[in-house]
Design a protein around this nucleic acid. Structure first.
Length: 272
DNA sequence: GACCAGGTCATCA
DNA sequence: TGATGACATGGT
């Protein structure tokens, strides 16, 4: 069935192309195929209408929740418009939203992401999905992965990250309330907890908390953010990741992670 | 063949 | 705390 939602302040393309989720496939006409809450769907935006095609009914709320469409973005926009350096990303990508993705997907996806590029992360994601579920768009549960071996993941192209993902899948499948417990913690506590996982350091933990747990004070500093923040605010001086995090927290506070998403996408698209 | 990609880990001072 | 090199893989 085909349906649509009116979306006054949403940019599907910027949201989907900004490296938050890895399981969607983009088609030439700017439509996206993937899975949301276990349901296969094709999404497409035309102006202020978001069209979706799916075999299920009553998907409006699920999609609205996934893209967090009811959130007022004006607090973020005030940062983007007041800073001359950021107006270009506001003009170009207004409506880019942080997705509320499945926490397990965020954990798996960003373990795979480390020292990797987005194209290859997507390829690995699809290979793992196809192998375990037989469907390009359905990523396996921790149980499904833990029932195989590290070598299985290695053969699917994960490289040295195979050990990380396998061990984390085993741990989470053995602890039924792992995700639920994490979601009850504050940012700092949850980050320390996540960093106990193999393959999860400060950057990956921040990504997981930002995209999987809506902790907007998380500010992941990867090579793109490092470069663009140095360029825009430190005259290209050689500043550490830690100092950049501190600077972002001071400058953008509670919404620093949200601003980070605009910085990241703007940097990657070459408009900053 | 070197360098890079949404880094992490072990090791050493 | 901070610096350094290894780590899989594929693209440029």
């Amino acid at each position: 069935m085909k349906s649509s939602i009116v979306v006054p302040d949403f940019n599907l393309e910027a949201t989907m192309d900004s490296g938050q989720v890895f399981g969607f496939k983009k088609y030439d006409d700017k439509s996206y195929e993937g899975e949301i809450s276990g349901r296969l769907v094709v999404l497409r935006q035309e102006k202020q209408k978001l069209y979706f095609e799916t075999g299920y009914s009553d998907l409006e709320n699920t999609i609205s929740d996934f893209f967090d469409l009811k959130r007022d973005l004006r607090p973020i926009y005030s940062y983007l418009t007041q800073d001359r350096r950021l107006r270009a990303v506001y003009t170009r990508f207004k409506g880019l939203r942080l997705i509320k993705q499945n926490p397990w997907y965020a954990i798996a996806g960003f373990i795979i992401s480390s020292n990797n590029n987005i194209k290859r992360i997507q390829r690995i994601w699809r290979a793992v999905s196809m192998y375990f579920t037989g469907n390009l768009f359905l990523f396996p549960d921790p149980d499904q992965i833990s029932s195989q071996t590290e070598m299985t993941l290695r053969k699917l192209g994960l490289g040295y990250r195979a050990r990380f993902l396998y061990k984390v899948a085993c741990k989470i499948s053995a602890d039924e309330s792992y995700i639920e417990n994490l979601s009850k913690m504050n940012y700092e506590t949850a980050k320390l907890k996540l960093m106990e996982l193999d393959g999860v350091g400060p950057k990956v933990a921040d990504c997981i908390l930002l995209y999987g747990f809506q902790k907007f004070e998380a500010f992941p500093v990867d090579v793109w953010i490092l470069r663009i923040v140095r360029k825009l605010y430190f005259r290209n001086r050689d500043i550490s990741k830690e100092k950049i995090k501190a600077y972002a927290k001071d400058k953008w506070g509670f919404y620093s992670g949200y601003v980070q998403q605009y910085l990241f996408h703007g940097a990657r698209m070459g408009i900053l």
